[in-house]
Amino acid sequence: MAFTKKVTLKSSDGELFIIDRAVALQSRTIQYVLEDTNPVDAIIPVPAVDARTLSKVLEYCKKHLIDLNTDFEDYSKWDKDFVDAEVWMLYDLIMAADYLHIPPLIDLICDKIASMFKGQTPDKIREIFNIDNDFSKEEEEDFKKKSGWAFK
């Protein structure tokens, strides 16, 4: 039986994830931890990421490790489905990807978020992302005056 090194990650809510070392190495954050301490069978805590998000991130890492040989079309379709998620999930994912430092995943999610902005008014964007408008009346007026043409 081939010997594969395993790594154990512990999510913020205490769940343990045993994964191949190669999968974990896609996260630069974990890569640094492994290089620094080289823990054998030790648990690496991931305090900023909960289990649901971590499992989704690891799903991405596994896919992108195993399927390196699949052609581009397949890959992009899978990626597209992967980020076809609820808005709150995207937030958790981007924060996790940022914390774990997985550049291709960050790019993928940023592409998705940016695509949701295109052609939308600030009001609509606030609605989609559940953001409060914290600008004062005067500031709003100032935007309208300076670049009102861009809001129509």
Binding site: F117, G119, P122, I125, F135, A150, F151
Partner: peptide, 13 residues
């Protein structure tokens, strides 16, 4: 698109 950029910055502080 320039409009998207202007609108983006007008969402919140």
């Amino acid at each position: 698109h320039i409009c998207d950029r202007i609108r983006f910055r007008a969402v919140c502080k």
